[in-house]
Each structure stands twice: as C-alpha cells, then as structure tokens.
C-alpha cells in the first residue's frame, strides 16, 4: 500500500463509501487490458508493468498515483501511444491503438490527445501565443492566433500573449501548456506530474483549472502524479506499485452508499 492520504482524497466520506471499480455505465475513454512491459538486458528481464488493466470513463478526472519507479509514467506513455507494450491492448476512444502504425498513432494523438508535462515543455523561443498556435497549426486549424488568445483567456493569461516562457512564472507556464493541450478541443488530456514543479497554491490552481475544463467540456483527464494534495479533485484514483495496480478507488457520489 502506498502512503497516499486517502482521507484527504475522500474527505469526510465514510469508509463505507469506498468501493472498488464500479460497473461502467458511461462511455469508456481509455481501456487498457493486461498490459505487460518487459525490458530485456542480456539474459536479464525487468518487468516494468505486469498485467495492468485500467478503465477511464469519459469526462472523468482520473489520477494515476504511485511512488517513484512504480511505472506510472511508463503506463502513461503506453496509454498515449508513445510506447509499445510487450503484450496487452489499449483502446482509446473505442479504437485499439496498439494495432496502429507509428504514423497512424501520431495522427491519432494529434487529433484526440492533449499533453501536459511536468517540465512544461514549452518552446522557449516562442511567445505564449505562438506556443499555443503551434498546436493549432499542427492540426491544420485556421485563425490560430485568434483561437490561441481565446484559450489563453480561458486560462487567465490573455495579457501574456507576447511573453516568452522565460518571462512567465512556473504556474503561468503550466497554464500556457494547458492552453496548448486544449488546442483543437481534444477529448483526452494526459498530464504527467503537472504540479510537481509548482508550489502548493499554483499546483492546486492548476488542478482546479484542469478539473473545471474537464467538467465544462466533458473531456477526460488522466493525471499521473504522486502529489497527494490533488486527490480531492479526482473522480477516481488508480494506485500503482512495482508495475502493478494495487488499488482502484472511486469517489462516491452522494447517495451511492
């Protein structure tokens, strides 16, 4: 069991409100089945992921938690189609991406996925607006500047359009990264430790922003984190340890005891 503060996640809810994975009634955004990833080095094998199965419903904010080295970022890479598992299947938005070719995967990511990174991964030579515009241009969407400003406005940074990343604070950089991830309205947002480089206040603000964006537009947000401060914004938490899922917890809704 990990050191996650589940009390914080579930707040004042009674322990009886904890329940294992519920029967999914909503559309499934992510379905990973029996994922294994084995690294071989000479005669030695290292099992990075072992029989991992995971389902993320559309429109929910899902946390993938675990200590360092537990395999959560590796799992995120597989779910995003950036890494090919040794075995197992990944379905995103109803399509089995493990069967896709690399160019097909790239096109799928471009169309349906938005990414947020721990280190922001903004282009340092570009302004905030240009960083967002890049995503629009990659997707072939016109009026990129106008739409980039709209997105920056949504994340509260319309007045920072012409600032380069070096002129922005950590929280502002992550907001620009979120605006970029939202370009083209992708259905799935995948975030890797989005609060790790931020202080508590900024970290919470970023997570609230992600949650509100998810809830208002019905996007699915998968967040890899080991930051227990953000438990309370999640709909569901999957806990990973040593490459295996050890816990799947769902926040109970009122009246679902």
């Amino acid at each position: 069991m990990t050191a996650i503060d589940f009390k914080r996640f579930f707040g004042k809810m009674a322990p009886s409100s904890l329940s294992p994975v519920r029967v999914m009634t909503k559309e499934k955004a992510i379905v990973a089945s029996h994922i294994n990833l084995v690294y071989r080095n000479g005669g030695e094998e290292f099992k990075a992921l072992q029989d991992v199965s995971l389902t993320v419903k559309s429109g929910e904010v899902h946390l993938l938690m675990g200590p360092s080295g537990s395999g959560k970022t590796t799992l995120l890479s597989i779910l995003a189609g950036l890494l090919t598992p040794t075995s197992g299947q990944v379905h995103l938005l109803g399509e089995e991406i493990t069967q896709f070719s690399r160019p097909h995967l790239a096109a799928f990511r471009l169309q349906h996925l938005g990414f947020i990174f721990q280190g922001f991964n903004l282009f340092p030579a570009l302004t905030a607006c240009e960083n967002v515009e890049v995503a629009f241009h990659l997707k072939g969407i016109h009026q990129a500047r106008k739409k980039a400003i709209e997105l920056l406005d949504q994340v509260g940074l319309a007045d920072r359009c012409n600032n380069r990343p070096q002129d922005l604070s950590g929280g502002q950089k992550q907001r620009v990264a979120i605006a970029r991830a939202l370009a083209g309205n992708p259905q799935l947002i995948m975030a890797d430790e989005p609060t790790a480089a931020l202080d508590s206040q900024n970290g919470h603000a970023i997570i609230e922003l992600l949650r509100s964006l998810a809830k208002t537009s019905g996007r699915t947000v998968l967040i890899v984190t080991h930051d227990p401060r953000i438990l309370d914004v999640a709909d569901r938490v999957t806990d990973l340890e040593d490459g295996k899922i050890v816990t799947k917890l769902t926040k109970a809704k009122p009246g679902q005891h």
């Binding site: 790239a106 799928f108 471009l110 990414f115 990174f117 991964n121 282009f123 990659l138």
Partner: peptide, 16 residues
C-alpha cells in the same frame, strides 16, 4: 531535442 520530442508526442509527423 525535448522540443522536437514534444512535437512528436503531440502528433507532429516526421515530415513536420
């Protein structure tokens, strides 16, 4: 390199 990696992750083709 990280920026090119970011572009690839976002779905940019090798051609881009």
């Amino acid at each position: 390199l990280r920026e090119f990696g970011t572009l690839k992750a976002m779905g940019a083709s090798n051609g881009v």
